[in-house]
């Protein structure tokens, strides 16, 4: 019955602090604040920093790395945009160039064609001219030949030597009348 005696003794040795567990002692509230606040500041200064230091450093590092990654990502995006813009510009430029080249080519073709046509016409004209000249010359030649032949034939026919120029005049006149008829 030792413990029972203890219990009873405890019951009698009440120091008169309070009536029971349900009393609210203002002094104890103050004490709790004092103890807790002192504990809080001591732990904050001497204990927590050492325990959580590595974790906090790790967190800071991760934060920094995340920020860095975000920054790099941003940069990459910006450079990609720049790149795309340049690409689009280059494409536009190439397109322009092609169109320009096409117009130039077209113009050149037109020009060449016109020139070729002109040259062709010129050649044709010249050919015609030459042909006409040739024909005229041939006709003249033929005529002279015919005159000679006629003269020879006439000389043979009349068996006499005639005055060359005077006879010639007569035959040519005759031939001219022939020409008019034909």
């Amino acid at each position: 019955m030792y413990s029972l005696a203890l219990f009873l003794q405890e019951g009698h040795s009440e120091g008169g602090a309070s009536g029971g567990p349900f009393t609210l002692e203002p002094g104890l509230i103050i004490w709790t604040w004092i103890v807790f606040i002192v504990l809080f500041f001591m732990l904050k200064k001497f204990a927590w920093p050492h325990i959580v230091r590595l974790t906090e450093e790790r967190e800071r590092t991760i934060q920094k790395q995340l920020a860095e990654a975000a920054r790099l990502n941003e940069e990459a995006k910006a450079s990609l945009d720049e790149h795309n813009k340049l690409l689009a510009e280059a494409k536009d430029r190439a397109h322009e160039l092609v169109i320009e080249a096409k117009t130039i080519g077209e113009k050149e073709r037109e020009r060449l064609l016109a020139k070729a046509r002109q040259e062709q016409e010129e050649i044709l004209k010249r050919a015609k001219r030459e042909i006409e000249g040739e024909r005229d010359r041939a006709v003249a030649e033929l005529r002279r030949e015919a005159v000679d032949l006629s003269l020879a034939a006439a000389a043979k026919l009349i068996q006499q030597k005639l005055d060359d120029a005077g006879d010639r005049k007569i035959v040519e006149d005759y031939l001219a009348t022939l020409e008019d008829k034909s």
Binding site: L4, F7, L8, E10, G11, S13, E14, G15, G16, A17, S18, G19, G20, P21, T23, E25, L28
Partner: peptide, 16 residues
Amino acid sequence: VDIGEILMHHTADAYS
């Protein structure tokens, strides 16, 4: 033995 008394006393604050 008053159990209730012991109970109240045990959980209460004291100057001891």
